[in-house]
Design a protein around this nucleic acid. Sequence first.
DNA 1: CAATGATCCTGTCCGC
DNA 2: TGCGGACAGGATCATT
Length: 267
Amino acid sequence: MPELPEVQTVLDGFTTALKGRRVTSLTGLYPGTLIIDPDIPNEVFPARITCAERRGKYMLFCLDSGYRMIIHLRMTGKLVYNPTPGEYGKHERARFELEDGTAVHFIDPRTFGKITLCATENMAKFIPELGAEPLSKEFTPEYCRSRFTGKKQPIKTALLDQRIVAGLGNIYVCELLYRCGIDPRRPAKDLSDKELKSVVRHTVEVLNEAIANNGTSISDFRSIDDKTGGFQDFLRVYQKKHCPKGHDIANVRLGGRSSFYCPVCQK
DNA sequence: CAATGATCCTGTCCGC
DNA sequence: TGCGGACAGGATCATT
């Protein structure tokens, strides 16, 4: 499931694959996958991508036709560059055709992923409120304190809230809390300043390690070249039976999500 | 306003 | 072997 490091990996690959190339068309192949802002005409393509950035788990693109594109992979979305054009299996939900005849396929078995085309001034309508980028200087212990004050919900749930921190998902929150030695069930408001410092430090640490390894290939995550990520080899608690120290891992549901932690190491 | 729950969707895995 | 059911979960919407 793509979280910040996986989205960054896909974005880098997609940008590289499309660098200097003209996209001749974008075709939606499943109802609801391709969303088009009613304020824009249909002539979005052909176009070149002139800029690409990530915001949380959203990929944002500028097109030289003057419009914007937003891609969210949700659970199972993948972008696959295919140098030999043609059909691409039953889970293909959208297709970018390039002028040289190659294509990028949007593959998404569970169909939650979305590609949005919109006018620049309408961007905000298609992107929800997002909190701090965890790899920016905005993400500090003081920021966490301000957002966690009065929050009774578990720290795990608060960190998954994209309005508080943008880009974290279930895997990395489980992992960073293990590194912090913090029980995921603890109310967010109860964390000490020292613990918030630890949360920030370990969030940055785990995300940077994952990015360096091209993400985590749990489920079926692949980069655009269909390569697996490598961070799954470094997971310490997520879907594990034992933590690195040999203790049994517990799995509780918090906010409807399975939450792996070590009852001995995390207090 | 905060917190919880249902929803979307399909591949995978488990038990019988 | 095959079937039903539980499970996975990001974001959104509805409910408490």
